[in-house]
Simulated scan of single mutants.
Amino acid sequence: MNGAADDRERAEELLLARISATAGRARLGRRRVTYRAPLTGPWRRRSVTAWLRYLLRADGGPARSPASRLDLYEHGLTVAVGRRMHAVRFDATVVRRCTVLTSRGVTGALVLVDVQGARVVLRRGDFARSQEWWSVICGAVVAAQVPRALDALRQGARLEFGSLWVTADAVGSARTSLRWSEVQRIEVRNGFVAVRADGRRLMWATGASGIPNLCVLRSLAEHLARAGRDDD
Results as ranks from 00 to 15, higher is better:
G61T: 09
R25I: 09
H86N: 13
V48H: 08
L220Y: 00
V216Q: 05
C138G: 05
T40E: 15
V33P: 01
R64M: 05
P66H: 08
R46S: 13
A140L: 04
R189L: 13
R18V: 06
G108F: 06
T78D: 09
C215M: 09
A144Y: 01
H223G: 02
E13I: 07
A50Y: 04
L214T: 02
E13W: 06
M203P: 04
R89Y: 06
Y35S: 03
G29T: 10
S20A: 08
T78E: 06
M85N: 09
Y35Q: 02
W43N: 04
G108V: 07
R25A: 14
V120D: 03
R69F: 03
Q116M: 15
G24T: 11
T206C: 10
T99C: 11
V33Q: 15
Q131M: 12
L77D: 03
G60H: 07
A149G: 02
S20E: 13
L178F: 13
R119F: 00
A144L: 02
E222A: 14
P62Y: 05
L224S: 13
S135K: 10
L164T: 03
R218T: 14
D231V: 11
A152M: 04
A149V: 07
S103C: 11
R31Y: 08
E9I: 01
G76H: 08
T107I: 14
A21K: 11
R201I: 12
R229N: 10
L14G: 08
A208L: 13
H86M: 09
V120E: 00
L28H: 01
R200P: 08
R44I: 08
G105H: 04
R189V: 13
G105S: 11
G162K: 00
D151W: 06
L224T: 00
W165A: 08
R154W: 10
S20V: 08
A225M: 08
A21G: 11
V94H: 12
